[in-house]
Design a binder for these strands. Structure first.
Lengths: 150, 150
DNA sequence: GTACGTGCAAATGGTTTGCAATCGT
DNA sequence: ACGATTGCAAACCATTTGCACGTAC
């Protein structure tokens, strides 16, 4: 479990600061049920509800920062906005099968894919942050009903 | 090679039409050097240069349509805009290793990943369109110089 | 002839940014 | 005290959409 102190240390290492906002956002993601992910907008709403409102700008700045630090995963389906979730250590990374018509998403795991990702990054001297397989497909329900300009 | 006639047939199958614009856009993608991909904006410029201008709206509508038909692959790196390329038959699909700092991209292939993608889609009854492994990482050059709000 | 498709210009909507005030160190 | 960070509102920019005209069939 990634603690506030770890976050603080990592921020300091780079000359940055630990703020209540950053701490709160980290907590929200940690308490999120496994497999869940939030968009910036959803995180904003959730923080309202929790009684610790944080401005949208700060949310965008923070999730971007944490994604770059490798603390969050940035997920990009075909919906036009990004989702974020805690970046589990590699063995827990999961992948997505999504329907390009209705956006239905199915999560799955694959050790082989993770292994390939790790190996590829290593070979090129890159520091691995995240590794996601995105399968775009058409789900059974949508296979009979393609609409032109939806 | 996917011909104009094949496109025409597939469009008609769904009650749509083959227009000069759709035909031209297909040709441009087919003549694109292997591994290249274009954003909507880039395609727009290229069509200007070729002397067959097509409006941006039509371009957006067309690439979206073709991506849904499985003719184009929609690539989404972390740059904020999508890129498109011809959707090769499965064995030629490739994947991307990108640096989240400088956006440098490295392409690679992996039959195992494609196999896993195909199997997963099949198991769920989905009709596979595309399968991309996205590895987000930090390249050697950027590993020493992380900037906060770039 | 009848939808469908195109081009234009305007709207949309997620995300970013400038700036003054505030806060962490 | 200094520079990083926040919040607000305005700006951005890729993409979408309404509508009138044109065109594939």
């Amino acid at each position: 479990m990634y603690t506030s102190n770890a976050l603080k240390a990592e921020l300091h290492e780079r000359g940055w600061r630990l703020t209540p906002q950053r701490e709160t956002i980290l907590q929200v993601f940690q308490q999120l049920p496994k497999g869940n992910h939030l968009s910036a907008e959803e995180l904003h709403d959730k923080l309202q509800d929790l009684g610790t409102p944080i401005s949208l700008s700060t949310i965008y700045r923070t999730v971007k920062l944490m994604a770059r630090m490798g603390i969050l995963r940035e997920l990009e389906f075909a919906e036009g906005h990004k989702h974020y979730e805690i970046n589990q250590p590699a063995p827990h990374h999961h992948h997505h099968l999504i329907c390009v018509q209705c956006n239905k998403a199915i999560e799955f795991r694959s050790d082989s894919v993770l292994k390939i990702g790790a190996k590829t990054a290593e070979k090129e001297g890159f520091h691995l942050l995240d590794c996601q397989l995105l399968i775009q497909a058409i789900c059974p329900q949508c296979q009979r009903s393609i609409v032109p300009n939806a």
